[in-house]
Simulated assay, not measured.
Amino acid sequence: MATEAFESIVEDFEFLEDWEDRYRHVIELGRAMAPLDDALKVPATKVDGCASQVWLHIAPEGGRFHFDGDSDAMIVRGLIAVLRALYNGVPVDRVPAIDAQGELARLELQDHLSSQRSNGVKAMIQRIRETAAAAA
Rank of each mutant, 00 (worst) to 15 (best):
Phe13Cys: 12
Leu36Lys: 01
Val54Ser: 00
Val82Pro: 11
Thr131Trp: 03
Met1Asp: 11
Ile98Ser: 06
Asp38Met: 06
Asp68Asn: 12
Ala135Phe: 09
Leu113His: 13
Asn88Cys: 06
Ile128Ala: 02
Gln126Asn: 12
Lys46Gly: 01
Val92Lys: 08
Gly78Glu: 03
Ile125Asp: 03
Pro35Val: 03
Glu17Asp: 14
His112Lys: 12
Val121Glu: 00
Pro91Trp: 09
Gly78Met: 05
His112Ser: 15
His25Arg: 15
Ala34His: 13
Val26Asp: 08
Val54Thr: 00
Lys41Gln: 03
Trp19Arg: 14
Ile125Asn: 04
Arg64Pro: 02
Tyr87Cys: 07
Val54Leu: 02
Pro96Ile: 01
Gly49Met: 01
Ile128Gly: 01
Gly30Ser: 13
Phe15Thr: 14
Arg84Cys: 14
Gly69Ala: 04
Glu14Arg: 15
Gly78Trp: 02
Asp37Ile: 06
Val121Leu: 00
Asp37Asn: 10
Gln110Ile: 11
Arg94Ile: 05
Ser71Thr: 06
Glu7Ile: 06
Gln110Met: 09
Cys50Ser: 01
Gln126Cys: 07
Ser115Cys: 05
Lys41Leu: 00
His112Tyr: 15
Ala123His: 02
Glu4Gly: 07
Asp72Phe: 06
Arg117Gly: 07
Ser115Gln: 05
Asp38His: 10
Ala32Glu: 10
Asp21Thr: 14
Arg24Glu: 07
Phe67Leu: 02
Gly69Ile: 05
Asn88Gln: 05
Gly102Ile: 05
Phe13Pro: 13
Asn88Lys: 04
Leu16Val: 06
Gln126Leu: 08
Leu107Gln: 11
Thr3Ser: 13
Val90Tyr: 00
Phe15Asp: 14
Ile75Leu: 12
Ser114Gln: 13
Trp19Leu: 11
Asn88Ile: 05
Leu36Ile: 05
Lys46Leu: 07
Ala34Gln: 12
Ser114Asn: 15
Asp21Phe: 12
Leu113Glu: 11
Glu14Met: 13
Asp68Thr: 14
Glu103Cys: 08
Ser118Tyr: 07
Val121Ile: 01
Ala32Lys: 13
Cys50Thr: 01
Glu4Lys: 09
Trp19Cys: 14
Gln116Phe: 15
Gln126Met: 06
Ala44Tyr: 08
